[in-house]
Design a binder for these strands. Structure first.
Length: 563
RNA sequence: GACCUGGUAGCUCAGUUGGUAGAGCACCUCCCUUUUAAGGAGGUGGUCCUGGGUUCGAGCCCCAGCCAGGUCACCA
């Protein structure tokens, strides 16, 4: 492993610490009794505290020094004074251990008492400190100046995602995003649990990937010798539980879709799905806006949220527009009662890209997606979707071409999708079969599997039920003003890092030639290697740099020898 | 998948027709007992993403590739 100078220095310090009898990775617990936040909130002059955290700044002024300690709650200033720490003659603890052997990033424990400095900063006067864990790699050290401007921030997106631990240590705003993420989950749980809906878990490995139209990941179970799919949705399992007699079930579902990755798609993402018996989609719309209003204020302390250039407000109620009306609003074209061909040619006139594999529902969806969707900035329910694109949704009570479905749009994106669930087993079977036909016709979004066990469950009877799914990642993006899903996932999927080879192929080759004839003349070695000038130069420099070979000038000329 | 932009020190970034690789912070040494992004003085530190090519000479130009970000397309 090639170490940088900074890493070598820190490793050397490990040895020096051990020579002083200090274990840089002690096993015993550290009895902390406070933290940075508590100290600042309940500050008492002279109070004794025991705290621990990472050393994040050292500002040494001879025999005194100010430093900053960062713990899970934030940072607190600590004051190291030589004569406070070393009361006797031996000043090693301050002069050597603190000043020289402690680095930014090291975990230390501190016993001290609180005081206020002359400039009024709440500070811990260190009486005793101990090393809890030494950091061998240097952290980036962003700094904030008096005007609040950040210098040297750790900003490279690739490095931040690949090394999220570093990102979290040095970028407090990043940590804040994830705290809000968890607050959102907690708020939703509270909202559901208060209404006595029941949190459940359903299979992630499924023999049939159902409940959505998406390409699944496939794996294989050895003892059963069958393919298994990682779930793309949990809908069909939750409905089985409604059949089984639960009145309300919900699950935070990690779903997996084997599709492209971009700033709004990660191969694994989190959806929340909830199903409530004896309800319909009208009830669910009321429920949804109450839920989001509650969640937004739990997360941000207000129902308002800023997203890019938009100010959005999650305060209920939200506008409700039928899909047909929306298309009239933005295109002037009325889809009601029109045939597939009429809609297709209308779409073409509007400049919407359509083809012959598209059925009526898909055509309408294309028009809506192209012309309408992006216009809804404030939370808006779009209702009554075409039947063809909603195979799990109950037919509309007043129009057999439509379904009782809504999606909630925010900033032009869908964040929730809900139905009056289809509970007619015969209709459901026909809809699945229609999907198969669409799939055969070439629509790769149509579901190509029929879950017969799900149909069997419906045949035992499912009460009228409304269900809703919410894209948790997208919702938290809106609540934290992040345009990229990677910013709201701790560990977004990345291409694997290439590992660096110790010796290049050329270096190996040259070394092999040399090993059998060491030492040999440089020119001879060069011509035997058959490398171009440039390549030779790079190779021999690489080898000498890593102290694998040595070049010496002698009376006979340049000699290369293996080390 | 297409196009655009980027990849240089631990971090943030400069780098002139193509002519000895730079700055700030960090780090190291010395001085400094209540400071607050940055006290003073001196110093160390480089696979310029990778591989080819052009050239006397490439961080820079050309070709191919890798990785990331963005825009679109596709997809919920």
């Amino acid at each position: 492993m090639q170490l940088t100078e900074l890493e070598l220095i820190r490793r050397e310090k490990l040895t020096q610490l051990r020579n002083l009898g200090i274990n840089p990775y002690p096993a015993d617990l550290f009895p902390l009794d406070s933290n940075s936040k508590e100290i600042k909130q309940h500050f008492e002059e002279g109070k004794k505290v025991t705290i621990a955290g990472r050393l994040m700044r050292k500002n040494i002024q001879g025999k005194a020094s100010f430093a900053q300690l960062q713990d899970s709650e934030g940072r607190i200033q600590v004051y190291f004074n030589r004569d406070e720490i070393c009361t006797g003659e031996d000043k090693t603890q301050y002069n050597e251990v603190y000043k020289k052997l402690l680095d930014i990033g090291d975990f230390i424990g501190i016993e001290g008492k609180l005081f206020t400095t002359q400039v009024g900063e709440k500070t811990v006067m260190v009486k005793k400190f101990s090393l809890l864990s030494k950091a061998l790699k240097p952290l980036p050290q962003p700094k904030v100046d008096a005007e609040g401007k950040v210098h040297d921030a750790f900003t490279d997106a690739e490095q931040r995602y690949r090394q999220r631990y570093v990102d979290l240590v040095v970028n407090p705003h990043v940590k804040e995003v994830f705290i809000k993420r968890t607050k959102l989950f907690n708020a939703m749980r509270t909202f559901f649990n208060d209404r006595e809906y029941f949190e459940v878990e359903t299979p992630i490995l499924q023999p049939i990937p159902g409940g959505a139209a998406a390409r699944p990941f496939v794996t294989h179970h050895n003892s059963l010798d069958i393919p298994l799919y990682m779930r793309i949705a949990n809908e069909l399992y939750l409905k089985r539980l409604i059949v089984g007699g639960f009145d309300g079930v919900y699950e935070f579902s990690k779903n997996f879709r084997n599709e492209g990755m971009d700033r709004t798609h990660n191969p694994e993402f989190t959806a929340m799905e909830i199903y409530v018996a004896y309800k319909d989609y009208n009830w669910m719309m009321d429920f949804c806006e109450q839920l989001l209003e509650f969640c937004a204020s739990e997360v941000n302390g207000t129902t308002k949220a800023t997203f890019g250039e938009h100010e959005i407000d999650f305060k209920a109620p939200y506008a409700r527009v039928t899909m047909a009306q929306s298309i009239v609003d933005f295109t002037g074209f009325d889809i009601s009662g029109k045939s597939e061909e009429e809609i297709r040619s209308a779409a073409k006139e509007m400049g919407v890209d359509v083809d012959d594999t598209m059925g009526k529902g898909k055509l309408i969806d294309e028009i809506f997606g192209e012309k309408c969707e992006g216009n809804y900035i404030q939370p808006t329910f779009i209702t009554d979707y075409p039947k063809e694109m909603s195979p799990l949704c109950k037919e509309h009570r007043t129009n057999p071409e439509l379904t009782e479905r809504f999606e909630l749009m925010v900033c032009g994106k869908e964040i929730a999708n809900a139905y009056s669930e289809l509970n007619d087993p015969i209709d459901q079977r026909e809809r699945f079969e229609a999907q198969l036909k669409l799939a055969d016709r070439g629509d790769d979004e149509a579901t190509a599997f029929i879950d017969f066990d799900f149909l069997r469950a419906l045949e035992y009877g499912m009460p009228p039920t409304s269900g809703m799914g919410i894209g948790m990642d997208r919702l938290i993006m809106f609540l934290t003003n992040n345009a990229s899903i990677q910013e709201v996932l701790f560990f977004p999927q990345m291409r694997p890092e290439k590992k660096k080879v110790e010796m290049t192929e050329d270096e190996k080759e040259v070394f092999t030639i040399l090993k059998n004839n060491s030492p040999m003349e440089l020119d001879a070695l060069k011509s035997q290697s058959g490398l171009s000038n440039k390549k030779w130069d790079k190779t021999i420099k690489g080898l000498t740099k890593n102290k694998i070979v040595k070049v010496e000038k002698t009376e006979e000329g340049l000699l290369v020898s293996a080390v």
